[in-house]
Simulated scan of single mutants.
Amino acid sequence: MNGRALIDLTRLLDILEIEATVLAETVDGAREELRIPNCPGLTVGETARHIGSVYRMALAWIRTGDSPETWQREPGPFQSLRDYVITGTRELVDELARHDPAEPCSTWWAADPTYGFWRRRMAHETVIHRVDVQAATDLPIGEIADEVAVDGIDEILTLWFGHRLTVQGVVGTTDGTVAVRAGEKAWLVRVTTGGLGAWRVPGRDIDRADRGRVDAEITGPPSNVYRYLWGRMPERAVNREGDIDAINQMWALLRLATR
Rank of each mutant, 00 (worst) to 15 (best):
3 G>V: 04
5 A>R: 00
7 I>E: 07
8 D>G: 14
14 D>V: 12
16 L>T: 14
28 D>T: 08
41 G>N: 05
48 A>W: 11
49 R>V: 14
50 H>F: 13
50 H>W: 09
52 G>E: 13
52 G>L: 09
52 G>H: 06
55 Y>N: 12
58 A>S: 13
59 L>S: 10
63 R>F: 13
70 T>P: 06
70 T>R: 15
72 Q>P: 15
72 Q>L: 15
72 Q>C: 14
75 P>G: 02
80 S>A: 08
83 D>S: 13
91 E>P: 06
92 L>D: 09
100 D>A: 10
103 E>I: 13
103 E>L: 14
112 D>W: 04
112 D>T: 11
114 T>D: 03
114 T>L: 09
116 G>N: 08
118 W>G: 05
119 R>P: 09
119 R>E: 03
120 R>L: 09
121 R>G: 03
124 H>T: 11
128 I>T: 07
132 D>N: 07
135 A>M: 15
135 A>R: 13
136 A>R: 09
136 A>L: 05
154 D>S: 13
157 L>E: 13
162 G>C: 09
163 H>V: 14
170 V>C: 02
173 T>M: 05
176 G>H: 01
177 T>W: 01
189 V>A: 04
190 R>P: 08
191 V>Q: 06
196 L>W: 00
196 L>C: 04
197 G>P: 06
203 G>H: 02
206 I>G: 02
207 D>S: 05
214 V>R: 00
215 D>I: 07
215 D>C: 10
216 A>N: 03
221 P>C: 07
224 N>Q: 15
229 L>A: 11
231 G>L: 06
238 V>M: 04
239 N>Y: 12
239 N>E: 15
239 N>P: 14
239 N>F: 13
241 E>Q: 10
242 G>F: 08
244 I>C: 05
247 I>F: 02
249 Q>R: 11
250 M>G: 01
254 L>S: 04
